[in-house]
Design a protein around this nucleic acid. Sequence first.
DNA 1: CACAATTAGATTGCGCACAATAGAAAAGAT
DNA 2: ATCTTTTCTATTGTGCGCAATCTAATTGTG
Lengths: 151, 151
Amino acid sequence: MARKPAVDPLLLGNQICFAVYSTAHAFNRFYKPLLDKLGLTYPQYLVMMVLWERDGVPVKDIGEKLFLDSGTLTPLLKRMEATGLIKRTRSTQDERQVLIALTPHGHALREKARAVPEAMLASSACSVGELFAMKNELEALRDKLNAALGE
Amino acid sequence: MARKPAVDPLLLGNQICFAVYSTAHAFNRFYKPLLDKLGLTYPQYLVMMVLWERDGVPVKDIGEKLFLDSGTLTPLLKRMEATGLIKRTRSTQDERQVLIALTPHGHALREKARAVPEAMLASSACSVGELFAMKNELEALRDKLNAALGE
DNA sequence: CACAATTAGATTGCGCACAATAGAAAAGAT
DNA sequence: ATCTTTTCTATTGTGCGCAATCTAATTGTG
């Protein structure tokens, strides 16, 4: 009768953080060939989803939705501007803000992008309902961890 | 009677990949102050967990457990050697392999590391059972996505 | 109005991730 | 035993992420 069975919290196989980490990388690898066709990286795909939902937003808003700061977004958005997906223009109302707007090409990419979640759903062997439930549980955990940082 | 309600698969809020991605970053940010005390980054913490479980393993084995390749691990392990956590020695049986072994300091760090999953559990507002269930679901999804890459 | 405090982005530096490539060693084939 | 193929690690280059710092613009206060 072992005292400490397989419940040691320091075993890799018992770590939820590693399950999340390794699943995030698996998504990245799975999406890469699909996103290559669109000329997007995964974080750029996230930015595009923000913009498809609401266009012409300041960098700050994108950062809040994606949990990313200017150190990440500034160079990323410059690369996206260089590839012709977006345009960066400084706001006239508030000269501190840089507004991000889709180009026609960026807008048009939305239809092609539908193949991405479709392929994931097909390969996941999960129902939409199961994935939706996981999504909600993950978001709840994420929000708890983020909340714990602000004490 | 909307045809397409809030189920558009291209909305950020409906993306399980983003839930996974943003939760992974939340873990990283949550762990950072804890791991700073141990002198570890998060990927280095993962390597330590592999080594605490089984010491003196080749780089390849670490890579398979963590789903990382030599391009990531070689410089990471060199940094860990520089900070005195591990030792890298080329195998005499197979000169291609580099074996990774813990230093006494690396071994001793295990006890301090117990605070990390403890703090996560306390802030997660989840039971061990709930987290374990999520872990298993994520691993299943991860394995499906990885399997889909090998066709 | 002047002036301190806050806010939005940009910049620098470091550490992952990963594709692509290279090189040395081992294993397999003839 | 030679030659090919495979395996293991290292290297290079690109793109995130994030802490820390900086600058300029706006807001708040007296």
